[in-house]
Design a binder for these strands. Sequence first.
DNA 1: TATAAACCTATCTATATAATAGGTTTTAGA
DNA 2: TCTAAAACCTATTATATAGATAGGTTTATA
Lengths: 139, 139
Amino acid sequence: MLVSTKGRYAIRVMIDLAEHDREAYIPLKEIAKRQNISEKYLEVIVKSLSQAHYIEGLRGKGGGYRLVNDPSTYRISDIIELMEGTLSPVSTIKGEPITFEDNTKTLWEGLEDVIRKYLDNITIQDLSTPVQSGDFYII
Amino acid sequence: MLVSTKGRYAIRVMIDLAEHDREAYIPLKEIAKRQNISEKYLEVIVKSLSQAHYIEGLRGKGGGYRLVNDPSTYRISDIIELMEGTLSPVSTIKGEPITFEDNTKTLWEGLEDVIRKYLDNITIQDLSTPVQSGDFYII
DNA sequence: TATAAACCTATCTATATAATAGGTTTTAGA
DNA sequence: TCTAAAACCTATTATATAGATAGGTTTATA
């Protein structure tokens, strides 16, 4: 498994935020309910997203989270790399890259390459249901 | 991590066999030494390869393992799928495919697709140092 | 008949995954 | 000014997976 629930849930949180009022702060409770993920586990995930300045939190009543930038600027590759620590398809030893035997070195490098190329070209915007111009919000 | 040591070592065993006398049976002990992998752990790996009829073993003195087919017929995708159980980049719950939220379903399917396409087109032969016509064997 | 090999079954340990628990701090609004 | 709602913080726990190891039995060959 290349992408664990942390990576997957992080993407869903970002999509959720992208699909709702970009100016407003959305409470985690709401996201948890919509995405059917425990609020406590989401806390773990948004912490990373927040520290990376992908999202920002506002404390206190009326608080929540919102995206820092436009959904089109968040590449899936970056989110996964943030959450998983790497995009490499093969294991590393104590954080150090493994020493590949020559024969398979290019195999794994090439694989990481196609994975990265694919995920580089997909953004949160691509995965978000666009807010229709006909939609209206109660602000 | 998409590919664990099981998948990686399996590929190395296959390459090792491809690079040596195709008719002869190569003892695991030799492969273990060359590849610097414990013989006991390799036993676990060759068991799967053997059950899948990718390689065949011969017991007793003078025995060992050899490839069943030509190196060009072994796709890396198949070997990894055999060893890891899946080529899917995301986790499954109790062996059942996870139910994806619609937004990201195509994301993960697309990712599995590019991974498979890449690995489908590489065979054990591609990773093996070809036996030169100038080389000679003592048979 | 000794030796070398595959083959078999079980066990083990460390790490990563996936979460949960129980708080403290901050802020808005009644 | 108090209360509610929210983020934020630190620690713990359960389970699964990864990555092996141990100790044997069976089989074939020279």
